[in-house]
Amino acid sequence: MTLFTKLFSEIFQERELLYILAKRDISIRYKQTYLGIIWAIIRPVLTMLVFLFAFKNVAKIGDISGYPLQLVIFSGVIIWNLFANTFQAVSNSILANNNLISKVYFPRLIIAFSSIAVSIFDFIIGLIVYMLLSLALMHTISIYILLLPLALVLTLFFSIGLGLIFCSFSVKYRDLLQMIPLIVQYGFFISPIVYTAKSLQISAWFNLYSLFNPLVGIVEYARILLIPGYHLQSFDFIYLSITSSITVFGVGIYIFTKKESSFVDYL
């Protein structure tokens, strides 16, 4: 039995605990807030409006490569929010649940996996808002949206894997926690969130860029599925991003399983 098979078999056996922790996290996220889940709508919409104002009134950009600026920005923002929220949640999951770690044994990956429930919930709300926005702009919703779960899984692979790497080492080296906000802050601008990668494809370094930043291919793949008629010069970089995402996920789980036995010593 391989390491991965054993791990996911244990998690499946403890799926009830996974469900309870996930439900708890979603409940806590919006508990005692007046607007509740409406915040899942407000955040991506405000981000889109800020960049929409900057592009249309400052940079005087009305569309990007013939596609509505609103759809280009919003499609990027909901994927980015999924990555950023998942990465931060997984990175902090062990430290945030140290009371559970020290009391009873169960597969520690359950804590990390349950922490992504809020991110997925917010993504679904954001996707609904995107579809309403698309209809409001008189754009049809592509049938390819049915393949969007693949983009969702790839984003989760990358964000969970990266989060597990940081989580594994930050339990002992707390300085790593200071890097997480920086990655989220600057990563937004080095990923094609409020712009497209189409103009970058002619660059010699583009494939390397896609390899080390899987979000490049994932975001553009999501746009192909979400925006009717959206096309790119080449799809090769998307395959590089897929490879990187799966690799980071595998490395993250491997490192986490090697380090989890020492978590209690530093909590």
Rank of each mutant, 00 (worst) to 15 (best):
V118T: 10
A89I: 03
A204H: 09
Y67Q: 09
G161S: 02
F166T: 01
F188Y: 14
R43N: 15
L95M: 15
A59P: 09
I120P: 00
R24G: 06
G36E: 05
L109S: 14
G250I: 11
L150N: 01
I78C: 11
V58P: 02
Y221G: 05
G229H: 03
V58E: 00
I78G: 09
G62F: 07
S261M: 12
F74Y: 12
S93I: 11
S119E: 00
Y266W: 05
G163C: 02
L208I: 11
L164A: 08
K31G: 07
Y254T: 14
Y230L: 06
V45A: 13
F256C: 13
F206K: 03
Q233M: 14
A204L: 08
M131C: 14
E220H: 10
E14Q: 15
L164M: 11
G36S: 05
E260L: 11
F188H: 09
H231K: 15
E10R: 04
K56Y: 04
Y266S: 03
Q185F: 14
F256R: 07
S142Q: 01
G229W: 04
A59K: 14
Y230K: 00
Y30K: 07
A112S: 08
Q13H: 13
E10Q: 09
N98C: 15
P181L: 07
F206M: 03
Q233E: 14
K56F: 05
P68C: 04
G126K: 12
L147P: 03
L132M: 13
Y34A: 14
F83V: 02
D25H: 08
D63N: 15
G250A: 10
I79A: 02
R24W: 03
L150R: 00
S245E: 06
I41V: 13
I124N: 04
A222I: 09
L146Q: 06
E16V: 10
A222G: 07
A197H: 08
V264I: 15
R24P: 04
L49H: 00
I165Y: 02
D25S: 10
S91H: 03
I73V: 07
V50I: 11
Y209R: 03
L162V: 08
F87E: 00
L21F: 09
K6C: 12
L3Y: 14
S191V: 02
I128T: 08
A40W: 00
S191Q: 05
V58Y: 08
I28A: 14
I227W: 12
D175T: 00
Y186K: 03
G250D: 03
V129K: 02
L109N: 14
A222T: 07
I41H: 04
A204E: 10
L132S: 09
A222H: 08
K172V: 04
K172G: 01
I110R: 09
L49T: 05
K198D: 15
C167V: 08
F189S: 11
I120S: 01
H231C: 14
V50N: 02
I111K: 11
A151W: 02
L135G: 11
R174P: 03
L137K: 05
E10W: 02
L21H: 06
A204I: 04
V58L: 12
S134T: 06
S134W: 02
N99Y: 14
I28P: 09
Q233V: 15
